[in-house]
């Protein structure tokens, strides 16, 4: 295990209500990082705030944040004082593929929640953080962004955009000292997936995602699959020639 930082940097979690976001917050707090949970109706997270603070003896704050409110975004970024050393976005919305196919409003909500909102927020934070020459930006994207598939391509295309945005940001800031990390969970066992029949070998617990995030922030590869097996699966899927791929049902 890597040693925790000497003076743990404050961590901002965008999408702090999600089970994955809370797991990441708990994991950082366990290493004594102060944490800010940013979400809509943040006051409703008071019990989670108290819990993390009590368990780990760190400062935990709540911040009101709407990922789709671009007008408020610059103000939100400026208001984070002291500025975070690590920003993690777990913002996302799965939606229903069938609904997204018929209803452009629903599809736009999925696209904006998975791409526009998180990408622009992390982009603005990068502008503030890069000059300090340290820290990390983490985007929790998805294996669904690796290749568009019939079952979830509206969601997947937005995640693909997010993954590409992070790739470009990382490329641009490669000399800055700010790490830009892309984490791709496969299936995650959360309330959203409860009752679904997911293959156990491909399904991670939220705490595993959190572990992968913390590891990637501290060093090593900046693009990580939470379970390595997903790297192999997606390489195989990406490697299929299009004439063959288009007839698959994945």
């Amino acid at each position: 295990m890597t040693d925790p930082d000497p003076t743990p940097a404050p961590v901002l979690i965008l999408g702090g209500r999600s089970e994955i976001g809370l797991a990441i917050a708990r994991r950082f707090a366990a290493d004594r990082h102060p944490v800010v949970l940013a979400a809509r109706d943040a006051a409703g997270l008071e019990a989670d705030r108290a819990d993390i603070a009590l368990r780990h003896g760190v400062e935990v704050r709540l911040a009101e944040y709407d990922a789709l409110d671009l007008e408020a975004l610059p103000g939100f970024v400026a208001a984070q004082q002291p500025p975070p050393g690590i920003v993690v976005s777990v913002v996302g919305l799965m939606g229903e593929q069938a609904e997204s196919e018929r209803d452009p409003q629903a599809a736009a909500r999925v696209m904006r929640s998975n791409y526009e909102g998180p990408a622009l927020a992390l982009g603005l934070f990068a502008e503030v953080m890069a000059p300090r020459g340290k820290g990390a930006i983490v985007g929790v994207s998805s294996v669904a962004g690796d290749r568009g598939r019939a079952s979830n391509y509206v969601y997947g295309s937005a995640k693909a955009g997010f993954t590409a945005f992070l790739s470009g940001l990382r490329n641009r800031l490669s000399d800055s000292g700010l790490r830009v990390v892309t984490v791709k969970p496969g299936f995650v066992a959360t309330r959203m997936t409860e009752g679904m029949d997911l293959p156990a070998r491909l399904t991670a617990a939220p705490a595993e995602v959190a572990e992968a995030v913390v590891r990637a922030v501290r060093g090593g590869p900046e693009v990580v699959y939470v379970r390595p097996i997903w790297g192999l699966v997606m390489r195989a899927i990406r490697g299929l020639p299009e004439p063959m791929f288009k007839r698959t049902r994945l």
């Binding site: 019990a47 989670d48 108290a50 819990d51 009590l54 368990r55 309330r191």
Partner: peptide, 19 residues
């Protein structure tokens, strides 16, 4: 199992409030 938050601790009395 999802109601697993610790809510308050009073060190005077050693009282923990939790879910």
């Amino acid at each position: 199992r999802r109601m697993d938050r610790m809510l308050a601790f009073d060190p005077e009395r050693g009282q923990l409030v939790a879910e």
